[in-house]
Design a binder for these strands. Structure first.
Lengths: 197, 197
DNA sequence: CAAATAAGATACTGCCAGTAGCTTAAGCTG
DNA sequence: CAGCTTAAGCTACTGGCAGTATCTTATTTG
């Protein structure tokens, strides 16, 4: 596979091949153990070519990560009650975070300190992951009269995922049990909504 | 300083000297940039001696971190209202987390994946930091009639710090602005208490 | 077809974790 | 205090990896 390549790739095609190889390596060994040599080998090129495109290992991995994100638009759950909507969103977030890709995001965010620029996109990704969806769910709840409009701020709306994220940052990589999600919703999120209604 | 040492230290005294040197290095350059050579040099000994005591760089740093923890007992704020008590606790937590030592804890938790044993103590440290204090504050609020006893669960009581911690895990090392603390208290914590009262 | 550009190969520097083996000081034991 | 055991300290090494330099060669473009 690496040996007999007919043509010499260039430009965008090569970019793409390198990113693809990086994604595969990330899946295979994770960010922490990924080496530039391995990526180069897998892409059938040399490190040099990579460094001409991305300034560092971290930047390359971030670029690759961003390329591998799911592009399907979020569909917002609409079950008729805040409780089950919120639970559905939380479960989805939990699944995503416990995915290899989710772990990768955490590894990247944790493992890159010295590279503010590519990192910005990542944090953005992580933190704004779904503000809109939560607001949408709450907007519906407001229109049903279940919740007061004063709850429609990012801080309030995303409390549940924020707590979930905190769970991950404490517990490490393991998936969070469903009971915890229910606890977050019933002990925190719903009471909070109630007080805003 | 490294040259003319009269005696050759042994056992506990040497342990101590190495841990001390590690602490100094951690303060000087942080976990990520700490090298075993530097620690050995600072302690006036050799890497060999260190590796006879701790199996790896990570284990050494965790040991050093645990030795440097503040031992002063927490005093619980008692200002007469949940709002200012909570704000005081949050501010204290924020100060601690933005401290070099706090950053170090996060660096360690994030940077050590392959060593479950020493890590357990660390996570413990991070997560149980202050459950008791928050419960105490709430207990007082309950006895004042400000809050309902149903709020006296770890999950509910610590929501504010949990959100703060989340803030750190997203924002990186920087200290969280006071306005965010106020936002957490006024938009989330107090409403939550209200709904439990 | 020639000049410019970029890919690919190879080899190198520098850094650092962890290891090996030896020398020598400290402390114990009789 | 002599002799033995233990561990400190020294020096040098292996191996892995990020990032760089240099040169050759394929591809594009004018």
């Amino acid at each position: 596979m690496t040996s007999a390549r007919p043509t010499r790739r260039r430009g965008a095609a090569l970019d793409e091949a390198i990113l693809q190889a990086t994604i595969e390596e990330l899946h295979a060994v994770g960010f922490r153990s990924l080496t530039m040599d391995a990526v180069a080998a897998r892409a059938g090129t040399s490190k040099n070519v990579i460094y001409r495109r991305w300034p560092s290992r971290g930047a390359l991995c971030v670029a690759a990560y961003l390329r591998m994100l799911p592009t399907d638009a979020e569909d917002t759950p609409d079950t008729g009650s805040v409780r089950s909507d919120a639970l559905a969103l939380l479960q989805r977030a939990n699944e995503r975070m416990s995915t290899p890709v989710g772990q990768m995001l955490r590894e990247l965010i944790a493992g890159i300190q010295a590279e503010p620029e590519p990192l910005r996109d990542l944090r953005e990704q992580a933190s704004r992951a779904g503000v809109a969806v939560w607001l949408k769910v709450l907007t519906r709840a407001v229109s049903r009269g279940e919740v007061d409009p004063s709850a429609l701020t990012p801080r309030v709306a995303t409390v549940a995922v924020d707590l979930l994220r905190n769970e991950y940052s404490l517990n490490g990589a393991r998936s969070v049990p469903d009971a915890v999600l229910v606890e977050i919703v019933d002990q925190v999120y719903l009471p909070l909504m109630r007080s805003h209604g």
